[in-house]
Nucleic acid binder design. Structure first.
Length: 486
RNA sequence: GCACCCAUCGUCUAGCCCGGUCCAGGACACUGCCUUUUCACGGCGGCGACAGGGGUUCGAAUCCCCUUGGGUGUACCA
């Protein structure tokens, strides 16, 4: 049996990080087993669904490189169409069959009647299940006649009063007691079928072998189990993955920060880092590695390494993982990314430099960066910025009497420098001269010359940094340094 | 309310199914040291958890029960 899994988003908003995570798990499982990853669009809620969101969600999936093998844009004739809105006739056909078999029935109750019955049941401390007369087989003929006459009716599934057992790959054996659900609607009175019904019909007809989805569907599964049974369909394997929650352990929402994938995409997070981080929220690497690429994980991915409890979505480790993936990239790729994705004065400057310059600039900024956008930011701070660093270190430098000597010596050299950039050899000659001729050594020499050249007490190795810095900028800084030192 | 799910460092987790090798391991964060005549990167340490209570057992993080806490569902939403 070849594995077929699906990701079935509702196009009612942007792709959510929780959705991306379940998509990832389905994708990894398909790749790990040589199976097929199907994308199905669950747009039965016509009020909230839009084709625009469908498009955007697919774009986000593509950005994450979670490419589907089958879907609305890559149909397999055997299973198409892949949008539930285009499959209405299929659902109706099966719903009608269930009515014929007496496993479902037409219901003519009004919303008011239903609401009143529900309130009464609650008040009497009974389960608020359907109690209308139409569930009685005796009314079947009358119902059929009324529908034939054009009257609108919902179709309800006659729920068997017995317990159901689910063997879930994550939760283990779950027993749903009888009376957990009443006779639920499978087709609305407006003729549109409902999620729990469509889902089963589709998973059945599309030969889905493994249903990997969020835990929020766990209780729904009892309804689905009933429908599988009524349809005479073989049950797929189920894996109900725990949910992502906010730092307050509440459902993830806007107030917890960015919850949709496109926001991370716009901020130029690395897609492979996002996948890496999301993967770890609820699944663990067999060797406890925590930085890895999707390709590395595919051969290792199994359904028995999920944790059963929900995980707090917290950006701190995400940042670390993004940094690790960034540091794995080679310079050529990083240069391309900076030029393509980043903007600002430092990027414009960057683009105008030689390849050699770019490579060195990447070398010195990479260790300081977790995000691609940190690179131009660091280029700005380290190479282009003319401001002074304030704080204890700078104050300490000011107290050294040698600082002024170092500054004056270097200032004179820089003022008379004819090239646009100071060479490493010249810089070495200057520090040698400071050491030999002026007798300055140790901290005052190195810290002092760093401050005299950069206006800062910290930063990358001067020998690499200074040859990358335009002399004009150093001159501007020196005016500031001069004022600071008095 | 009722049903279902869950419960190991602040966070993500390993271990739990198949009790002893766990006075509980890793990672992030925080922190100390080393390296770097600076900072970052890196390396080596430190801090830090089995929710509580019963039971079973020679022995429980691991099995059972209760409590507490959290989550989900209970729609003619998905």
């Amino acid at each position: 049996m070849t594995v077929r899994v699906r990701f079935a988003p509702s196009p009612t908003g942007y792709l959510h990080i929780g959705g991306a995570r379940t998509a990832l798990y389905n994708y990894l499982f398909a790749k790990a087993t040589g199976g097929t990853f199907v994308l199905r669009v669950e747009d039965t809620d016509i009020e909230r669904s839009s084709s625009e969101y469908e498009k955007l969600q697919i774009e986000d999936l593509q950005w994450l490189n979670l490419l589907h093998d089958e879907g609305p844009d890559k149909p397999n004739p055997k299973y198409a169409p892949y949008r539930q809105s285009e499959r209405s006739h299929i659902y109706m056909e099966h719903a009608l069959k269930l009515v014929e078999q007496g496993l479902a029935f037409y219901d003519f109750c009004t919303d008011e009647e239903l609401e009143a019955a529900k309130e009464k049941a609650m008040a009497e401390n009974r389960d608020p299940h359907y109690e209308g007369k139409w569930r009685e087989p005796a009314f079947a003929a009358e119902a059929k006649a009324r529908v034939a006459a054009g009257e609108k009716a919902a179709i309800r599934f006659r729920s068997p009063k017995k317990p159901y057992t689910l063997h879930d790959k994550v939760k283990g054996t779950v027993v749903f007691p009888e009376n957990m659900v009443g006779d639920f609607v499978i087709v609305r009175s407006n003729g549109l079928p409902v999620y729990n019904f469509c889902c089963v019909v589709d998973d059945y007809l599309m030969d889905i072998t493994h249903v990997i989805r969020g835990e929020d569907h766990l209780n729904n599964t009892v309804r689905q189990l009933m429908i599988y049974e009524a349809l005479g369909a073989k049950l797929p394997e189920f894996a109900h993955v725990s949910l992502l929650i906010g730092a307050d352990r509440q459902k993830l929402s806007k107030r917890h920060g960015a919850t949709s994938v496109n926001l991370y995409r716009n901020d130029h997070y690395l897609p492979e880092a996002m996948l890496n981080y999301l993967c770890l929220l609820g699944w663990s690497h067999p060797e406890e590695k925590d930085v890895f690429t999707p390709e590395e994980i595919i051969p290792l991915f199994t359904l028995d390494r999920f944790s059963a409890h929900s995980a707090i979505y917290d950006l701190v480790k995400f940042k670390y993982i993004n940094g690790q993936h960034l540091k794995m990239k080679d310079n050529a790729e990083l240069i391309k990314m900076v030029e393509e994705f980043c903007e600002g004065a430092s990027v414009d400057f960057f683009k105008a430099q030689s390849t050699e310059w770019k490579n060195k600039a990447i070398d010195i900024t990479k260790p300081y960066s977790d995000f691609i956008t940190d690179i131009p930011k660091n280029i700005q701070d380290m190479i282009l910025d003319t401001g002074l660093e304030s704080g204890e270190q700078a104050d300490e430098i000011k107290t050294w009497e040698s600082s002024v000597k170092v500054y004056q010596f270097i200032k004179e050299k820089v003022d008379n420098y004819s090239a646009d950039y100071i060479s490493e050899a010249d810089l070495n000659a200057w520090t040698d001269s400071l050491k030999k001729d002026l007798g300055i050594k140790g901290k005052p020499l190195f810290m002092g010359s760093r401050f005299a050249l950069t206006g800062k007490a910290h930063g990358p190795d001067l020998k690499i940094l200074i040859p990358l810095t335009p002399v004009t900028i150093i001159k501007n800084r020196q005016a500031e340094v001069g004022k600071f030192l008095g």
